[in-house]
Design a protein around this nucleic acid. Sequence first.
RNA 1: CGGAACGUGGCGCAGCCCGGCUAGCGCACUUGCUUGGGGUGCAAGGGGUCGCGGGUUCAAAUCCCGCCGUUCCGACCA
Length: 564
Amino acid sequence: MRLSKNFIPTVKEIPSDALIPSHQLMLRAGMIRSLSAGVYSFLPLGYKILKKAMEIIRDEMDAIGGQEFYLPALNPIELWEETGRVKAFGDTMFHLKNRPLVLAPTHEEVICSIAKNHLKSYRDLPQIWYQIQMKFRNEPRPRSGVIRGRQFFMKDSYSLDATWEGLDVNYDLHAEAYKKMFTRAGLKFFIVGASSGAMGGSASQEFMLESESGEDTCTVCDGCGYAANMEVATSALQKAHRDNESKAITEISTPNVGTIDELKEFLKIEERYLAKSLVFMQDKTPILVLMMGNDQLNESKLLSALGSDFRSCHPDELKSLTGADAGSIGPIGLQGFKIIVDRRLQGGNNLVSGANKNDYHIANIDLQRDIKIDGYFDLRTVNAGEPCPKCSKPLRVVNAIELGHIFKLGTKYSDALHAYYLDENGKEKPIIMGSYGIGVERVVACFIEQNNDKNGIVWNNALAPYHVHLIQVNSNNEKVVSIAESLYKKLQESLVDVLFDDRDDVSPGFKFKDADLIGIPLQIIVGEKNVNSGNVEMKSRSTGKRDIIEISKVCQYVEKFLES
RNA sequence: CGGAACGUGGCGCAGCCCGGCUAGCGCACUUGCUUGGGGUGCAAGGGGUCGCGGGUUCAAAUCCCGCCGUUCCGACCA
């Protein structure tokens, strides 16, 4: 492709709205332009790269027997009413004003409606159905360029099975396919156990990429490779140990002591003896949550412990429910509360907690003796430096970008939409589903996040928009022009995809800067210096290494380079 | 949705606090010359409803009010 005739609008200056490297570079290299918040046009260069990413994904999906669909973005709203997801998505789903249609944010409903009409027998199963298409989500806050947009390409696949064992097989096939895709794309990723959240289902893993600009938080262990989303992460931190003797309960005066730190200072005791109380409302039931010391409650963990949504209490509500303000609330003497306790406190005795009376605490609480407890759960948030639950090395806490997510969905959607099949015994059963997503733009943006330098992007062969970047340095030199032209022709004949900088109105420095910015792995530089002795220069974008080679050996060199 | 900032030729910005000549600078663009291995140099040009609406004033890019847009922090994130 000739740069003189094609549209790759590179820019020198960094657009002020772009903060992260991938966003800045995608704009500067002429890959994308923004149209409005979270909505991007892909220009020819960017689209070419996006298609490369899709091709890798498609290839690995086909390899596990996936069948590609093209599904409608416009969905009748009634379909979404049936699964209750109009409400579940709420404002995140785009609604059309002049038809009862919504823009699909994902496609479980459509897949199910097809399955329901055509997969009637266990003999029709299993199936893997996938699509690589635009999804629409009215994100309240788009950010980080194409990493969180309001419309984006997603590879979504759905496994349809007759048995739970079959689901396990398809789930594992997807996990393996994902590893292959991301490895081929050159991404340094890790896999975490995750919360399946409101999506429902039994197991779920996320494919993550460590990045400062990530919106998820994960713990990772550099020792053994353990990694988990903070929503489910645990550590091998010591539990409360039980003193031999449980002392008698006593009320103690603690004037002006509100926080755990103040209490620790005031009583001069170890933090592990302190039980912090938090109050939530679930429907109309007040919930008291006990945490050790300064341990932070993780709301995702609480959500899975409670099973349904909850909210925190207003200050005046706290006072009327417990008789005290936050800071003096405790488990002793509460009426009508459900009490749940973090596992770290399990078995604890001689604990101090609020007395439900301002400025007073109760000492020597024995959880087994003094309180009726409705359950122990892991509720705390892991902190950096705590020991890994597998190997006890210190954990790191990192931000990460979610590239892909695989779920064992189960029968939630097939039940709601009556997608049933007949088993060997002629018995009607819901199809068992899995759902597996990948953010395509994220694959591209994440690659750039991990592969750039001060001059621009550094593509690998898998995602690079062109195989080689041919630079004709001196357009006024006939010999340079004729050699560059003949190399262009010859390379194209060898099926090499060439970006040819044949511009005659641009200085050499400008061309080199553009080449480094766009970041094609191999640059072929045709300049006066070398052609006079029958040579051209091959420059690797990643290493900066230059080889002077004979003109006749260019194709051979390129071939070898592309294989590596 | 809560908090904050910004909005001035295509891009990056100055001017605004303290109202007053024809709204400026760099990049990009056009033309000519120049240069030709790391965003050449010189010269001459074109391009602006100063986000939108209202108000104050003799006079508003500048002060006041409202709205819209964009970005950041938080909440949310299937």
